[in-house]
Amino acid sequence: MIEIDIKKSFKNKNEKIDFHFKTTIENNSINAIFGQSGSGKTTLLRLLSGLETPDSGFIKVDNKIWFDSKKKINLAPQKRDVGFVFQDYALFPNMSVIQNLRFAQPEKNEDFLQELLEIVELKELQNKLPDALSGGQKQRTALARAVARKPKLFLLDEALSALDNTMRQQLQDDIEKIHKNFKMTTLLISHDIAEVYKLASHVKIVKNGKILKEGLPDILFDESKISGKFKFSAKILKIQKADTIFVVTLLIGGNLTKVVATKEEVDKMSIGDNVLVASKAFNPIIIT
């Protein structure tokens, strides 16, 4: 089990932000950190990995102390046994895929690396340099590299947010496979409710540098107050007159939708506005 109770203040130009994270993480679980940008999710991972030092508090991993301000213990990132997957991949440009993985291993174990490459489907590309890879391939390399030293704690900092949907799903599958095979305690940051649902057994909702709520993924539903209604935020792209009514073209999460509006409604709109689209009475079907 990992026990955390850490505080850290950051001084911005105008404001001081106080982070205080107090929580426990079960061994071998996948935990999603959910929250808006700027809420402190990345900071939490960086504090855990030792890339940032808390002002006070402690981090205890299976009774081993990683950080304790009172006992003046602060293990360097090198000594913490974590695998960190960075948002910008952070692959070493001078090393090929397999060299990146080899660099990460404390003791040589080529069989294990080949097994890893099999899981993330990079066997054929193992001698390529990172610059020759696509975004998804880079991220899979980064994933495999972080696992290569079999860390106790696996940290993913919005590892999937830069990828398109298909790529993202494949990466999610890879993370699932990796977890099934190696059972590392995992913390992953995500903005995506579907992703959290798919991968995580526990969710921690972070807001203003504190853990607001934690528990099973279901807690996300209380948070977003979902009712029977459909509700989306959208952007107005076009307003067209059609006979006596108007047709408004909206952009909702990458999809275009047309919605009918009256003259009075259109008068309040202008192109480029961000609006909320809600619908009460209709019967949606889910296609899988």
Partner: peptide, 8 residues
């Protein structure tokens, strides 16, 4: 940072 977290 990646190199440090990899124990180097």
């Amino acid at each position: 940072e990646a190199s440090y977290t990899l124990g180097k």
